[in-house]
Simulated assay, not measured.
Amino acid sequence: MTNHYYQTNPTSSHEILKWSFELFDKNFQFITDSGVFSKNTIDYGSRVLIQAFSWEKLPEGSILEVGCGYGPIGLAIAYASGRQVEMTDVNERAVSLAKQNANQNQIENVDIHLSDVYDSVYKKDYAAILSNPPIRAGKKVVHQIIEEGYQYLLSAGTLTIVIQKKQGAPSAQKKMTEIFGNAEVIKKDKGYYIIQSEKRGSQ
């Protein structure tokens, strides 16, 4: 049986890996496993998103990461920003690993739990939503993250995604413009696009 990282309960045999990676000024220690996305190192797209995302001008409030995997984006942003970060994934194994990684890196300002996109998120007033969307799950899921994200953001909150040009960045940018009225490519790096929309106007 083929296992995908966007499945709820991967059945592939465990293959625990432990490695470190420097993000901001911290040497993070990560535990990963089979059945999760990019288990051997932090994928390049996630690194570009972490570097490009800015929280300084956001409204007060917490940040939501949709599709957190074993946690590198959300944990790095929680560490650097000091904001509360809610991290969700549909993959039970990924959520378990993200919790372990939060504990071993002593990052407490996070709330990590299962959710299929926005089904089980806790609030509707996030300052920002971040996602390295599961491209292999299909365009429908990517567009769901974009379309439904709008209602979960504060006014002046942002939705930021990373997506490769060849895997649908132009389509995603078009959908973000349709939903938000704006979508800016804030960074391009090796074919990866960081696209950001801002919720403008009243709630």
Score class of each variant (00 low, 15 high):
residue 48 V to A: 00
residue 100 Q to T: 09
residue 150 Y to H: 15
residue 176 M to T: 09
residue 164 Q to D: 06
residue 87 M to R: 07
residue 155 S to V: 11
residue 102 A to L: 06
residue 131 S to D: 03
residue 19 W to H: 07
residue 165 K to F: 01
residue 169 A to D: 03
residue 155 S to F: 04
residue 139 K to I: 11
residue 171 S to V: 13
residue 93 R to G: 00
residue 30 F to K: 12
residue 172 A to L: 10
residue 23 L to Q: 13
residue 129 I to W: 04
residue 135 I to F: 10
residue 125 D to S: 14
residue 52 A to K: 14
residue 140 K to F: 07
residue 132 N to C: 02
residue 52 A to L: 02
residue 169 A to P: 01
residue 166 K to E: 15
residue 201 G to D: 09
residue 55 W to D: 11
residue 186 I to W: 01
residue 141 V to A: 03
residue 147 E to F: 13
residue 61 G to A: 13
residue 38 S to K: 08
residue 201 G to L: 03
residue 113 H to V: 07
residue 28 F to I: 15
residue 76 A to G: 15
residue 61 G to I: 07
residue 153 L to D: 12
residue 104 Q to K: 07
residue 25 D to Q: 06
residue 39 K to W: 00
residue 110 V to I: 12
residue 4 H to W: 11
residue 160 T to F: 04
residue 151 Q to G: 14
residue 185 V to D: 05
residue 78 A to W: 10
residue 73 I to W: 10
residue 10 P to N: 02
residue 78 A to I: 11
residue 190 K to D: 02
residue 181 G to M: 02
residue 170 P to Y: 05
residue 197 S to H: 05
residue 154 L to G: 07
residue 15 E to T: 12
residue 50 I to Q: 10
residue 63 I to R: 06
residue 73 I to N: 09
residue 134 P to R: 14
residue 147 E to W: 08
residue 197 S to E: 00
residue 155 S to E: 11
residue 46 S to M: 03
residue 22 E to M: 14
residue 123 K to P: 01
residue 17 L to A: 04
residue 23 L to P: 09
residue 92 E to Q: 12
residue 200 R to M: 06
residue 85 V to G: 04
residue 137 A to I: 09
residue 165 K to N: 07
residue 181 G to L: 04
residue 155 S to Y: 03
residue 126 Y to G: 00
residue 157 G to T: 09
residue 3 N to M: 05
residue 156 A to V: 08
residue 131 S to P: 02
residue 83 R to L: 10
residue 65 E to C: 01
residue 109 N to Q: 15
residue 89 D to V: 00
residue 160 T to L: 01
residue 23 L to C: 01
residue 152 Y to S: 08
residue 187 K to Q: 05
residue 147 E to A: 11
residue 41 T to P: 00
residue 14 H to S: 15
residue 77 I to Q: 07
residue 14 H to Q: 12
residue 49 L to G: 01
residue 130 L to M: 11
residue 10 P to G: 02
residue 68 C to G: 13
residue 27 N to P: 08
residue 181 G to P: 02
residue 194 I to D: 01
residue 121 V to K: 06
residue 198 E to T: 08
residue 70 Y to G: 12
residue 154 L to E: 14
residue 20 S to T: 15
residue 81 S to K: 10
residue 172 A to P: 02
residue 139 K to N: 08
residue 96 S to T: 15
residue 76 A to N: 08
residue 114 L to D: 12
residue 192 Y to N: 13
residue 32 T to H: 01
residue 79 Y to E: 06
residue 180 F to H: 10
